[in-house]
């Protein structure tokens, strides 16, 4: 069933009321696993029914609670059979009732505060974890935001002359963009449309100056993601090209590994 078909089937309500057949129960549990968002729907239905039940409460006689707690929890400390031979009646009454009740009150307060401590300690831990996670996420966002702002400042620079390097027959789909600052000669490259580099290899930028190839530097990738990056500056250039070289670069370009190029 799709999620919508399942909701319309009414099985979730039967399940929440505990009257679904074993087969229906199985179907509901499968759908709860498949569509976790149904758990919220189930929870709301259960709470609605639960409140209906609570609003129809019939308080049982207090003796039921007494009998229940005696049945479950006596024996550890209150069992008269264990106590009688050890503590005599006279010794027992030696401690005034006033002090006994103070001791009991202190003990109850202690237990109560332990319960609270435990619950607050858990809450504190949960909050701390959530805070750490949020801070990590914030840092990541700030990093990627800074990188994006940098990229954008290059692209929008008024002196930036965009140059498109088109793919050669080796890599017809490849493409790279150069932003050449006309006032300073700085060269920025946007390599995001270059194919993935084989391991141990790296892209190298070349500028053809007076017919000779001059290295423009290596193109860095960090975690497989390309960002706009600054290369060596060129004052004058006839053409740009990018070749695939072994990591670290080569003194001269390997011409049959030229991936993209553009004439000026």
């Amino acid at each position: 069933m799709t999620k919508e078909e399942f909701i319309l089937s009414g099985l979730l309500e039967l399940y929440a009321m505990g009257i679904s057949s074993p087969e229906e129960t199985q179907i509901v549990q499968e759908h709860l696993d498949r569509f976790p968002e149904l758990k919220q729907e189930l929870k709301e239905t259960e709470i609605a029914l639960e409140n209906y039940a609570l609003s129809n409460s019939t308080q049982p006689a207090p003796s039921v609670k007494e009998k229940l707690f005696n049945q479950l929890f006596s024996g550890d400390e209150k069992n008269p059979l264990n106590m009688a031979p050890v503590v005599s009646m006279t010794k027992k009454s030696f401690v005034p009732l006033f002090y006994k009740s103070i001791a009991a009150a202190v003990f109850i307060l202690l237990i109560g505060s332990m319960v609270l401590n435990y619950s607050y300690f858990n809450k504190y831990h949960k909050a701390q974890d959530a805070l750490d996670l949020a801070q990590q996420q914030l840092q990541q966002k700030e990093k990627s935001n800074a990188a994006m702002t940098h990229d954008l400042s290059v692209v929008t620079n008024k002196y930036a002359m965009p140059v498109v390097l088109n793919g050669t027959p080796h890599a017809p789909d490849a493409l790279a963009k150069i932003f050449w600052m006309k006032n300073t000669g700085q060269v920025y490259i946007d390599p995001s449309n270059l194919p993935k580099v084989p391991s141990g290899m790296q892209y190298q930028l070349w500028g053809i100056v007076d017919g000779k190839p001059v290295s423009g530097g290596m193109i860095e990738t960090s975690k497989g993601i390309y960002h706009i990056q600054k290369m060596k500056s060129f004052g004058k250039v006839d053409a740009f090209a990018i070749t695939l070289e072994k990591a670290g670069g080569s003194p001269t370009p390997t011409m049959d590994q030229m991936i993209v190029s553009a004439k000026m």
Binding site: L54, N56, T58, P60, K65, L68, F69, G112, V115
Partner: peptide, 22 residues
């Protein structure tokens, strides 16, 4: 196995469950 939590459970829900039985 917290007993005071069980006491809370009883105080809070015994009335509703009692209705079901009745």
């Amino acid at each position: 196995g917290d007993q005071s939590a069980f006491e809370y459970l009883y105080d809070h829900y015994s009335g509703a469950l009692n209705t079901v039985i009745l």
